[in-house]
Structures are given as structure tokens and as C-alpha cells.
């Protein structure tokens, strides 16, 4: 069984560089999620680990073996694609058996492994069907089954839930979590959905423009984001940012510190509480309330024109256009350098 080591991994397409030297250590058995906005290079990085993209520079090692020059099928990895990528002309059974057949595995062994995987994924009744006669969720399970039968060291998932509807996405997410618990393999999972990232991951890797912004457990990323980008990316709705001029008159007293001009303060919507003006950290005019029953999203705008959102238990009594003050516990405020975005 094996972990992964990435050292100064770069990717260039002709003149354009898309990965700028990624260093990453993944322990055996870890569930790692690559997350970031589209175009950040998360899928490219996954595909480089899979062996579907060449590594322009640096090394990728699985266990102790550097696999830069090893063919995809010999790396001990299996991949689940966003589009499932099942072979449409083969039955579910043949789809799962195909890889083993290529490896010249003994037919009895193939049968045993396919049946075992079908058992885990509850696909036993569908083995003779062709993919076109399956629902989206079933297709995704076949794709996962195809990965399981190969008994890989590392599972790679490329946005596996994106093509499923919301209800099925939650269910399949749970199934993947259970699968990880059961098999105990290393899994690397790419998504742009931070809920998937937060719920599944032992370790989240936040990427932007081909660079790692932060690596850490979900809770670390939420509680101590190292820069403004991570702070905004993790958490929904995203963190509100204010400069010194945007804050209410008594903000310094409530927060316990004067915000210098070179810094910004970040306040998470779910930490903001309606208060009287004397205890207010920020205040603004109410623009819109979205009442979702269990909580309300209050859309606000400050005098200085900064829009922000507060997540409150109940919708405020105030009407549109009225001024509301919000406060926050000082330890829940995050400070970032206004220019570099780094935590300060």
C-alpha cells in the first residue's frame, strides 16, 4: 500500500505553463480532495498522477517508485471519470472485467472480483445490462466498480458527482465515503464543490492558477485560512471582507484592535449577529432577505458601497432600506494583508 509524493511538479503546454511547481505529500489511506475554481489545474494535476498527461518537470512517486515514465495502467491507480466513460458497447460485467482481461488475469479470478465489486455497489442485478439502460447513478457505480476490481493502490476521482442530480449527489457522496472506510485505500478526489470537499476529505488541497494555496484538514482551512483566497473559497456563503473605512464607528472597541490601512478583516456570514449600533462592527442598509426557514440570508450594503451577507437564525424585523448593525466575536474575525492577501 502506498502514499504519494509530488515534488516540484510542473506542466507546460507549449509556451504556456499551467502548473507551477507543486509539492505535496499524501499519506497512505488518506482521502485527499483537490479543490479550486475552474481552470486552477486540479484536473490536470489528477491526470498527471493518473498518467494521462505528461509531467513536464518534477517527479510523481507512488510509494517509493517514481512513475513519471510508467504507463497509466501500470501505476497501480484507477480513475473514475466525470462522464463515467463506460464502454457503451459492453455490458456492465464486461465493463468491469475489461481491465483485468487486458492484464491477462485468470477468468475465474476476474469473475470473483467483478462479482465482489458488484456486491459492494449493489450492481448484482445489472451485470448483463448495457450502460445505456442504466440511470446516471448506476452508471457512476459501474465506473466506480471498474476501478475497484483493479484493486488499485490509489483511487482517482475526477468530479465524479457533477453529472448527477442533487439528491443522488448526496447519496453517492455518502457511498464514496463508506467505500473509503471499507477499502482503506488512498483516494484523490477533484471537485469544485466545497461541500464535497469539506465532507469527504481528510486533507484538502486548495489550488489556484496552477499553484497550491493551502493544504490542510477541512476544519483548519475553515478556521485558519492562510490567505484571502482560501478564506473566500471555503465556506458558503463566502466570507465578507472589509477595509478600515467600511467598518462601523465602534468596530475597534468591539474587535479589540484598530484595523490598519494595510489590512482587511474577514467576517464569515454565519458568525455575524444582529446587534445595537453601540456594539456594531459593521452596519449597512438592508437590500434583500432570503428566508430559507431554518435560517435567513440578509443581503446588506455599507455606506461605502461594500456588499455583504449575514446568515441569521431569523429574518430581521427591519424593512428594506433600514440600517442594521452586526457584531461578531473578536476571535472569529480573520485579518489579511490588503495587498498580498496573506493572513496577518
Amino acid at each position: 500500500m502506498a502514499g504519494l509524493t509530488l515534488r516540484d511538479v510542473k506542466k507546460r503546454y507549449g509556451e504556456t505553463q499551467v502548473m507551477h511547481g507543486v509539492d505535496l505529500d499524501i499519506e497512505h489511506g488518506e482521502f485527499v480532495v483537490f479543490v479550486g475554481p475552474s481552470g486552477c489545474g486540479k484536473s490536470t494535476l489528477l491526470r498527471m498522477i493518473a498518467g494521462l498527461e505528461e509531467i513536464s518537470d518534477g517527479t510523481v512517486a507512488i510509494g517509493d517508485t517514481v512513475v513519471n515514465q510508467v504507463a497509466a495502467s501500470k501505476r497501480g491507480v484507477a480513475m473514475v471519470f466525470q462522464t463515467y466513460a463506460l464502454y457503451p458497447h459492453m455490458t456492465v460485467y464486461k465493463n468491469m472485467a475489461f481491465g483485468l482481461k487486458q492484464a491477462k488475469t485468470d477468468p475465474a479470478e476476474i469473475d470473483k472480483r467483478v462479482k465482489a465489486a458488484a456486491e459492494i455497489l449493489q450492481l448484482g442485478d445489472y451485470l448483463d445490462r448495457s450502460p445505456r439502460n442504466l440511470s446516471g447513478g448506476q452508471r457512476q457505480r459501474v465506473a466506480i466498480g471498474r476501478a475497484i476490481v483493479r484493486d488499485p493502490e490509489v483511487f482517482l476521482f475526477d468530479e465524479p458527482l457533477s453529472n448527477l442530480d442533487a439528491a443522488l449527489r448526496v447519496q453517492t457522496r455518502l457511498e464514496i465515503a463508506r467505500l473509503h472506510e471499507r477499502l482503506g485505500n488512498t483516494m484523490i478526489y477533484v471537485t469544485h464543490d466545497q461541500v464535497e470537499a469539506m465532507t469527504l476529505a481528510d486533507k484538502i488541497v486548495v489550488l489556484r492558477d496552477g499553484r497550491i494555496e493551502q493544504v490542510g484538514s477541512p476544519i483548519e482551512l475553515y478556521e485558519r485560512p492562510q490567505n484571502a483566497f482560501v478564506a473566500q473559497f471555503i465556506g458558503s456563503p463566502k466570507m465578507n471582507f472589509f477595509g478600515p473605512d467600511d467598518l462601523a464607528a465602534n468596530a475597534a472597541a468591539v474587535l479589540g484592535k484598530e484595523l490598519p490601512a494595510s489590512q482587511q478583516v474577514g467576517l464569515r456570514p454565519e458568525h455575524m449577529v444582529i446587534s445595537d449600533a453601540a456594539n456594531g462592527v459593521v452596519e449597512g442598509k438592508m437590500e434583500l432577505v432570503e428566508n430559507l426557514g431554518e435560517y435567513a440570508m440578509v443581503h446588506m450594503i455599507t455606506d461605502t458601497g461594500v456588499e455583504f451577507i449575514a446568515k441569521t437564525e431569523k429574518p430581521p424585523a427591519a424593512k428594506k432600506g433600514e440600517v442594521i448593525s452586526f457584531t461578531i466575536k473578536p476571535e472569529l474575525a480573520h485579518y489579511f494583508d490588503a495587498e498580498t492577501g496573506l493572513r496577518s
Binding site: L52, S73, K74, M79, F98
Partner: peptide, 14 residues
């Protein structure tokens, strides 16, 4: 033909 199907083949060692 979706490129991923060919790539899945590569992963399967074809």
C-alpha cells in the same frame, strides 16, 4: 466519441 472512453481504455491497460 468522448475522449474519456479512450482514456478509460488507457487506464485499463489497452
Amino acid at each position: 466519441i468522448p475522449k474519456e472512453i479512450i482514456e478509460a481504455g488507457k487506464m485499463d491497460g489497452v
